[in-house]
């Protein structure tokens, strides 16, 4: 019960924190940090779904009895790599934006507003 609150609770907290940051902050770097937090929350949730009480890492040598679900681990590996790729892209664009606009405040990056 306690571990349920810890794992589910913290993943939900990370997800909603991430959404809150992205929606309310006005600084691009902070928004990207928010995206990263949202991503971590989703990954933590995915991996905690695969946990099985008393399970060990799914490596099948001679002495295994209960193992955790291996599928979410494989999925999270993929999701993490994708998250890294998005972060790298975002930071590259931010570097360029700072060069062109001289600011990271989205209120002042308004080339396209009609």
């Amino acid at each position: 019960m306690l571990s349920e609150i810890i794992f589910y609770g913290s993943s939900v907290a990370l997800i909603s924190l991430g959404i809150m940051i992205v929606l309310t902050k006005r600084n691009l770097i902070k928004m990207i940090v928010g995206l990263s937090i949202l991503d971590s929350g989703a990954n933590l949730f995915l991996i905690s779904i695969g946990y099985i009480n008393g399970g060990t890492a799914p490596i099948m040598n001679e002495n295994w009895s209960v193992v955790v679900d291996p599928v979410p681990q494989a999925l999270v590996l993929t999701a993490i790599v994708i998250g890294v790729a998005v972060m790298a892209m975002a930071l590259a664009i931010v570097v360029r934006i700072y060069e062109k606009f001289g600011t990271l405040d989205i209120r002042r990056i308004k080339e396209l507003k009609w």
């Binding site: 589910y8 993943s11 940051i21 946990y51 599928v71």
Partner: peptide
Amino acid sequence: GVIIFVIVGIFLYSVVIHNTFGADKMVLG
């Protein structure tokens, strides 16, 4: 922001607990 945080958090938590933590839910696994 805080209101968003609380609402999203409570709503999502009430949904995720339907997946019992630590239970053996493996099918493909």
